[in-house]
Every structure is written in structure tokens, then in C-alpha cells.
Design a protein around this nucleic acid. Structure first.
Length: 259
DNA sequence: CCCTATGTTCCCAA
DNA sequence: CTTGGGAACATAGG
């Protein structure tokens, strides 16, 4: 479920709560996941986002968490109950970072040198590099929405925000990526910068069950302009919003004004 | 029973 | 080898 704004919300909250903390233990509740014995007693140097991944930097080596579809992170203070579907917990002096994940897709991995492995990837919050994007899209025949969801080109981009960005930019999700014009890429880049920043400010989108580290829902669901509005009148033209499958994902768009 | 779900990866065909 | 599409992963809810 979580996309870039939701992960950004989590890493900011984790950065506050884990400052100066040391890993006391890693508890594995789901046998699918491997234990992380090398994490014990290491101090937290930083918490950062890598696309949709959470990276807890332990001063060189790092713990990497990917929440996939249904994963959540929950801050458990000492003495609090453990909620259902807990898959692992990272125990610190001040409390425990619990991963709650009904569908069990979330991953927990150990990396000795993540900085070396980490590719030089764009930070979408800093803005899109239009020449770079155009070069990557050149000749590609896949729909532009599928291109936006390519994590190599757009680390952190997810289904909800891709729909919102293409609606704001008035570009059809089915336009072939290689045929998107420079003017349209400029509109997409402007929409992406604005929407992603607003969504971070709102602490994400709580459509069903997204909650932040402290169990609070986000606010961006109140600002969605197209996602989830199937059958309702477009905010920009008289047409009705439609929903179709694109690459297996529900895709909301306005047939009237998304040329 | 059907379909859906904010993600990624693997397999297969062109 | 590349590209793009679909299924699989596992579970809950409508």
C-alpha cells in the first residue's frame, strides 16, 4: 500500500524516535523472514527512504524494509500489546518498530554495504529530470502510466499518485511513453512535484488502512481528484471518471479531458 | 463464489 | 537480448 509519501512520512517519524537508539533485538514472528543477528548492539546513524523502501543505517551496514502491499510499521511503546499480523519487530531502548502485514509480502533484509549497492537514483521529491526522463522513454511503446510505475525511472512512484499526476497533467494513461511530448513531460513533472509534496505534508493517503508510525491516518484522501472516483463527474469537465485495468492495476482517468 | 487491493518478481511470448 | 503482459505471492473485505 505505501507509496513515496507514505514511506517519507514513516522515515521522518522513525528518524525522530530512533535518534541515538541502539538495536537491542530483532524479533521474527513470521518464519518466512530471516533473523538479523548482525544488527544487535549497533547504533542508528540515520533512517532514509530508497524509493518505497525504508533503510535503517546502522553506521555502514543497514536494515532494509519493504512494505509491499499490506505492510505497516507501528511504534510500540514498552508494555503495549502486540497487534495481530505482527511479522517482525526491531527492539530499541525506547520502544519497538513492529511490522504489521496481513498478506505477508513485506520483506526484511540485511545489507553490509547498502551505499555501495544503492544506485544513483532520482529523488522524486526534488523534482523530475526531464531530459533524463525523455531519454529513458525514447522509443518505449508501453503506456505512460506503466512507465511512471517503473521504479528504475521513478523510484517511489505508486498507483494512486500515478493516476493523480496524469489527471493533473491532463495526459492519458494509455499514451505510449515514447510519444509523450516535452510540454506534456513538463506538465507531468510539475504535477508530480506538487502532488507528492502535498501528500507528504498530509502524511499520505488513507483509503483503506494506511496508518503512520503512531497509528494516525493521513489526510491526502480528501484531496484525491481522480483515484476512487469511478462514475462520478470529473472536476474539470462534464465527463464521468472511468476505471480500467492497465498492467493489472486499477486505473482511474477522465475520458473527457485526459487526451 | 466473484472481484478488489497504495507492490514486486518471475515466466513467457513476440 | 529487450520489451511488455500476465500470473503468482497470501490474506481480508465487499
Amino acid at each position: 500500500m505505501p507509496e513515496l509519501p507514505e514511506i517519507e512520512t514513516l522515515i521522518r517519524q522513525l528518524g525522530n524516535v530512533l535518534a541515538g537508539e541502539r538495536v537491542r533485538a530483532v524479533r521474527i514472528f513470521d518464519e518466512k523472514l530471516d533473523p538479523l543477528p548482525d544488527a544487535i548492539d549497533r547504533g542508528v546513524r540515520a533512517v532514509r527512504r530508497a524509493g518505497k523502501g525504508v533503510e535503517i543505517d546502522l553506521g555502514g551496514p543497514a536494515i532494509h524494509i519493504h512494505l509491499r502491499m499490506s505492510g505497516r510499521l507501528h511504534w510500540r511503546s514498552p508494555g503495549d500489546i502486540i497487534p495481530p499480523h505482527a511479522r517482525f519487530g526491531i527492539v530499541f531502548e525506547a520502544g519497538e518498530v513492529l511490522c504489521i502485514d496481513p498478506r505477508r509480502f513485506a520483506t526484511l533484509t540485511w545489507h553490509w554495504a547498502p551505499a555501495a549497492l544503492r544506485k544513483q537514483t532520482a529523488n522524486l521529491l526534488a523534482g523530475l529530470d526531464i531530459p533524463d526522463i525523455r531519454a529513458r522513454a525514447r522509443g518505449r511503446r508501453l503506456p505512460v502510466k506503466a512507465f511512471l510505475l517503473d521504479q528504475q525511472a521513478m523510484p517511489g512512484m505508486g498507483n494512486i499518485y500515478a493516476c493523480e499526476i496524469l489527471f493533473a497533467a491532463a495526459v492519458s494513461p494509455w499514451r505510449r511513453a515514447g510519444e509523450v511530448t516535452t510540454i506534456e513531460w513538463e506538465r507531468i513533472a510539475a504535477a508530480a512535484a506538487r502532488i507528492l509534496r502535498e501528500a507528504v505534508y498530509c502524511r499520505g493517503t488513507s483509503i483503506s488502512d494506511w496508518r503512520d508510525l503512531f497509528g494516525r491516518p493521513g489526510e491526502y484522501q480528501r484531496r484525491l481528484r481522480v483515484y476512487g472516483r469511478e462514475g462520478k463527474t470529473c472536476y474539470r469537465c462534464p465527463a464521468r471518471i472511468e476505471r480500467r485495468k492497465l498492467g493489472g492495476r486499477g486505473t482511474y482517468y477522465c475520458p473527457g479531458c485526459q487526451g
